[in-house]
C-alpha cells in the first residue's frame, strides 16, 4: 500500500459551509457596479435598471469602464490559468473601499467564493481577494440587507414566477433575497412552479457541450413556468434568462423572463429614499 503511505497526512479537506449568516455594513454613499459580460452584451437594460435602482436609493454608482468578465466561463471549463488572469484584471479595478454590487448571483458567487481558490498560491493577492469578497453583494441582497429598501408596488396586480440560478441560490442565497423583495409588494402574487429549484439547463458551456440534455432541461423549465399560471417571469441571473427566453422564443411563446431589477424599477416606488448615513 505504498501510494497510501506516501500521501501527506491529514490532506483531506473539510468542506466549510459556503454562505453562512453574513453581517451587513451600513448603507454607503458610493458603490461599484460590476455589470457582468452577459448583461453587457445581451441585457444592458437590466444593468442600467440596476444602476437606477441604486441611484433611487441615493447611492452614487461607479462603473469602471475597464471591467469585463468575472472569469467564470473559463473557470468552470477547467481553464484555470486563463480564468485567473481575467480575475486578476477585475481585482485591480475594484480595489477601493466601496461595496461591489453585481446584478447576477453566479458572478457575485465567483467574486465572493471562488477567487480564493483561484489565488490560493498567491498570499499577497489573497488579501485583495478577501477584501473584494467581503465587499461583494448580489443586487437584491444589497437592496434588501444594506439599503434596507421599502418598495411599494405600482400599477395593476400581477402574478409572477421567480426563477433563481442554482449557483446563485447555493452560493449567495439569492432566492431568499428575491422572494423577500417581492414579498414587500402588495400587488405581486409570487406563484411557485413545478420543480422550482431544479436547474434550467444553462450551465454555461454545458448548454453547447451537452445540447440534448440541456435542451431537455430547459424545455421542462419553460413548461413548468408556463404551467404555473404566472403572467410574468423574473430572475436575477441573465445566463438563465438567455436560456429560458431563447427556449420560449423557439417554441413561439410570447412569455419572456426579465431581470428582477427591471421589474422592480418599472413596477415599484421606493419609500426608503430617506438617505445616506
Amino acid at each position: 500500500m505504498s501510494p497510501l503511505s506516501s500521501a501527506p497526512a491529514n490532506a483531506t479537506r473539510v468542506a466549510p459551509p459556503l454562505e453562512a449568516a453574513r453581517s451587513y455594513p451600513a448603507k454607503p454613499a458610493d458603490v461599484y457596479l460590476f455589470g457582468t459580460c452577459v448583461i453587457d452584451v445581451f441585457f444592458p437594460g437590466a444593468g442600467m435598471d440596476a444602476i437606477r435602482l441604486l441611484e433611487r436609493e441615493g447611492i452614487r454608482v461607479h462603473f469602471p469602464q475597464a471591467q469585463s468578465c468575472c472569469g467564470q466561463p473559463a473557470y468552470t471549463s477547467g481553464y484555470t490559468d486563463e480564468a485567473r488572469e481575467v480575475a486578476r484584471a477585475q481585482l485591480a479595478l475594484f480595489a477601493g473601499d466601496w461595496p461591489v454590487v453585481i446584478p447576477s448571483g453566479s458572478c457575485a458567487g465567483m467574486f465572493r467564493h471562488h477567487y480564493f481558490e483561484l489565488f490560493k498560491d498567491e498570499p499577497e493577492t489573497l488579501q485583495q481577494v478577501a477584501s473584494l469578497s467581503a465587499r461583494t453583494f448580489e443586487l437584491a441582497e444589497f437592496l434588501l440587507e444594506v439599503c434596507k429598501v421599502r418598495f411599494e408596488h405600482t400599477g395593476a396586480p400581477v402574478r409572477l414566477a421567480l426563477h433563481t440560478s442554482c449557483s446563485a441560490r447555493r452560493e449567495m442565497n439569492t432566492h431568499l433575497h428575491g422572494r423577500a423583495l417581492l414579498a414587500q409588494l402588495a400587488g405581486v402574487e409570487r406563484v411557485e412552479h413545478d420543480h422550482e429549484s431544479e436547474c434550467c439547463g444553462f450551465g454555461g458551456s454545458f448548454s453547447v457541450r451537452m445540447p440534448e440534455i440541456s435542451g431537455a432541461m430547459v424545455q421542462d423549465k419553460t413548461a413548468a413556468l408556463k404551467g404555473s399560471g404566472a403572467a410574468e417571469v423574473v430572475s436575477a441571473d441573465c445566463g438563465c434568462l438567455l436560456n429560458i427566453n431563447g427556449c420560449f422564443e423557439k417554441q413561439g411563446d410570447t412569455l419572456r423572463g426579465e431581470h428582477l431589477a427591471s421589474f422592480l424599477l418599472r413596477r415599484t416606488t421606493s419609500a426608503s429614499t430617506g438617505g445616506v448615513r
Binding site: 445581451f42 430547459v218 424545455q219
Partner: peptide, 14 residues
C-alpha cells in the same frame, strides 16, 4: 436546436 439565437443589444452596458 432548442432555443432561438441570442441577440446582442444595440448598445452595450459599458
Amino acid at each position: 436546436r432548442y432555443r432561438s439565437a441570442p441577440k446582442p443589444a444595440a448598445r452595450s452596458l459599458h
